[in-house]
């Protein structure tokens, strides 16, 4: 927390800041007013809703693991090394962040789909991605990975290399340095990035819809279930949306918690 003597915020800033806050909060409140509380629990505890929530949690957990496994090395390479074309590579790695998810879904389809770039290879290996839960995990990983890379690379640059250099001069191998010095130093950033990518995976919709399909218990995650319920049962859609909002709030609270301890 900063000191109390000088806040550094001109008064006029509060007006647009308040409008911005209202812009985010008001729609959530409006949605809350539409929830039929008497039926809330029967709406969110239907077989379809529970299946969707469990699938969402399972796939998001799996894609978060994939994000950590692939994203930590990516962040290390981007923050600690320099090679020609690195800036370009960094921009490419962050591309899913700015791409519309539907575009990501189409790209994945032409890569892992039955007639995609790797389709034949996968068929030989006996792997069927189309319409499987694996497809959901791939779609979520694709959109969530940049969140982890971005926040971890930022933490790595902020932390600097002083301690790593000291550890190296004391005879630690590069692997030991990463394990014993780098990772503990950037742990808050790593946790924040992990939680963020989990949240992004949980909210994934466009790429999943385009790439994985929609079947209860297999590929129909909570956002897809909400989208479908909208057609027939608006009350259920609103109730499920609220569930997703609550999960998101919990996730944000977790990130804040980890930052405070940092």
């Amino acid at each position: 927390m900063a000191g109390h003597s000088y806040s550094g915020v001109p008064r006029w800033v509060y007006a647009p800041a308040a409008v911005g806050a209202l812009f985010i909060v008001l729609p959530l409140v409006a949605m809350g007013t539409r929830v039929r509380w008497t039926e809330f629990f029967s709406l969110v505890s239907s077989d379809a809703s529970v299946a969707a929530l469990l699938l969402s949690l399972r796939t998001s957990a799996a894609s978060t693991v994939l994000c950590v496994v692939l994203g930590v090395p990516m962040a290390l390479v981007l923050a600690r090394t320099s090679f020609p074309g690195q800036d370009l590579l960094r921009s490419l790695a962050l591309l899913p962040l700015v791409l519309p998810p539907v575009v990501g879904g189409i790209a994945l389809l032409y890569t892992f789909g039955r007639r995609g770039l790797l389709g034949d290879t996968m068929e030989v290996l006996g792997i069927q991605i189309a319409f499987s839960t694996m497809a959901v995990v791939l779609a979520q990983t694709f959109v969530a990975l940049p969140f982890l890379v971005l926040s971890l690379e930022g933490s790595l640059r902020t932390a600097g290399q002083r301690y790593e250099e000291v550890a190296a001069t004391l005879g630690a191998t590069p692997t030991t340095v990463v394990r014993r010095v780098t990772v503990p130093l950037v742990l808050p950033g790593l946790v924040a990035g992990t939680v963020l990518s989990f949240a992004r995976a949980l909210g994934e919709f466009g790429a999943t819809l385009t790439f994985a399909g929609s079947l209860q218990g297999v590929t129909r995650t909570l956002p897809l279930e909400i989208y479908l319920k909208r057609e027939s049962d608006a009350d259920a859609a609103v109730a499920l949306s609220l569930v997703l909002v609550v999960v998101a709030v919990v996730v944000v609270a977790l990130t804040r918690g980890t930052r405070r301890t940092a």
């Binding site: 032409y110 789909g113 319409f131 385009t210 399909g213 929609s214 209860q216």
Partner: peptide
């Protein structure tokens, strides 16, 4: 016994056009 139940007819058609289904 479908592999996917889509929310719109366009999504069904796309799965066929791309050869996924």
């Amino acid at each position: 016994d479908p592999v996917s139940e889509e929310a719109s007819v366009t999504d069904v058609l796309n799965k066929v056009v791309t050869g996924e289904a």
